[in-house]
Design a protein around this nucleic acid. Sequence first.
DNA 1: TTTATTCTACCTGATATCAGGTAAAAAGAA
DNA 2: TTCTTTTTACCTGATATCAGGTAGAATAAA
Lengths: 205, 205
Amino acid sequence: MVIVDDHPIVISGISGLLSDLDTVEIVEKMQSGVTLLDYIINNKVDLILMDIFLPVMTGIDLCKKIKQKYPQIIIIGMSSQSERSLVMQFIQNGGNGYILKSASFEEFKRCIYKAIYGEIVFSDEVKTIISQPLSEDLEQVPSLSRREKDIAVLLSKGKSTQEIADELFLSFLTVQTHRRNILQKYKMKNVAELMTHLLKNNLLN
Amino acid sequence: MVIVDDHPIVISGISGLLSDLDTVEIVEKMQSGVTLLDYIINNKVDLILMDIFLPVMTGIDLCKKIKQKYPQIIIIGMSSQSERSLVMQFIQNGGNGYILKSASFEEFKRCIYKAIYGEIVFSDEVKTIISQPLSEDLEQVPSLSRREKDIAVLLSKGKSTQEIADELFLSFLTVQTHRRNILQKYKMKNVAELMTHLLKNNLLN
DNA sequence: TTTATTCTACCTGATATCAGGTAAAAAGAA
DNA sequence: TTCTTTTTACCTGATATCAGGTAGAATAAA
């Protein structure tokens, strides 16, 4: 098993917790996604426990990339907060489970055990969150294009359409179009709602 | 020393890390601020290491409360992300230091050691963040009144001025005034910028 | 009780956003 | 190369925001 987290303390916490599990052996601990990608090329990995808020590449992208090449590797995601759509995204991209860092030791152990046997596992708190508002089957989470992201970032800084146009050397009308497309993509009414959504789901940066 | 964090793994990680420090003895580990407040009434505490994103009461409020009654207790804050103003707020409310969870073991130890001897300590990454844009002495962080917070929350959900007025049984014009006051308080241009600021600094909820 | 803050409310006008539709280059993927 | 997505751009009109000022009533603090 490989643990990926950019917080050394969390890594040491988890390894301490898992030291008495005889079925699981911690092979490697690392702090970034790129390191992990390098590692799995040369080594056999059964299970990965990863934070989804990682520098450079998000855990969701990382999971997707790994599963494309190595679908047999079991990947469990972790995070402190749990936004419903974030969890859904992770599972959609091949994740085998999701644990909140506030989960108890017992929950951690239970989840890891079950995941090994092929189950899709969630820690208790995650369960309640994803089970309640079962709106649409699996809500698809659209992603922003490069340009759209540029504009979204500038919007988050309070820039007006005109200011963004000036900054990116675009027509006012072009920015207006992008802006509208972004809102439509996420079905948001206005930028305020959009910002909340993007920030809570860590879709900027 | 008391560790307060709502993530069991983080607690175990830190206690593992500190087990070889002979000057520091971990007395208690707890997951919430209210538990801590109860504890310090009946027990002598020298040092507290606390996550600032805690359920119910935020670490900043908790720190303030403790320092008012027990100014001699040394309190170090922790978090995963580090927003400049968040750190400043913590220090303004009496915090003796701030460590990012991505800090190395050595940094952790160094910070805790120095804090004991009365220094205000920051982990390396925090240092760079708070040192760069030294804009205004100690930027004061205004807080929202009850009503303003209500409105800010509704704004974050994408509600328009009219919708908020209807929901809170207020005049359209009243909401407009509150809205303007909120923007002025934080010197923000529009709600988009406001939302980013409020969310990044965890000022909603 | 006096003072300060918060909440409430109104007026005006300039500017910006939002929503609808359309469409031609440009870039990436199949 | 063909097809799809992305990026660019324009038009119109209704609605909303933002910024300025003012001010009484209700709470909370001193």
